[in-house]
């Protein structure tokens, strides 16, 4: 299974980004082989509905699970509809992508069972 991990940087040693919809990028890691690729998040500067667009994007990447810090109502609904598992990692500035993945592998990440916050409806509306 492939896991998409939100990140501000370029690879496994880059910082984990606790934002989902407006994260800079996703690091897509194959849990079995450890191979990874980096994908710029097209929703980062979306006028609205960033959570929906980011969710569609990771579904399109073939991710079966996501690690991020929070999921809004629209992101949650979209990822849940696609059957993607949503894991929550802490917003810790010292946490790296590899660190977040290690937490998942050892089974210490909690799954989001519902949206973690209300919508932002920020920039444009």
């Amino acid at each position: 299974m492939k896991v998409a991990i939100s990140t501000t940087g370029e690879g496994l040693e880059s910082p984990f980004d606790s934002r989902f919809g407006r994260t800079a990028a996703f690091c897509l890691v194959d849990r079995a082989s450890g191979e990874w690729t980096r994908h710029e998040n097209p929703a980062q500067a979306a006028a609205g509905g960033a959570g929906v667009e980011a969710a569609r994007f990771v579904v399109g990447l073939g991710a079966g699970a996501v690690i991020s810090g929070a999921y809004g109502p629209h992101a949650f609904a979209t990822l849940a509809a696609a059957g993607v598992e949503m894991y929550l990692a802490p917003a810790d500035p010292d946490l790296t992508v590899a660190g977040a993945l290690a937490l998942l592998q050892e089974g210490s990440l909690r799954r989001a069972e519902a949206a973690t916050h209300a919508g932002h409806h920020g920039s444009a509306s």
Binding site: A47, G48, G49, G51, V52, A55, T78
Partner: peptide, 23 residues
Amino acid sequence: CAEVCEYHALAVVGLRVLVFPAL
């Protein structure tokens, strides 16, 4: 529909079409 929507008020994932009226 989801591709054309500037505000991401629609999403097609798998066999489901999601509509978000608030967006």
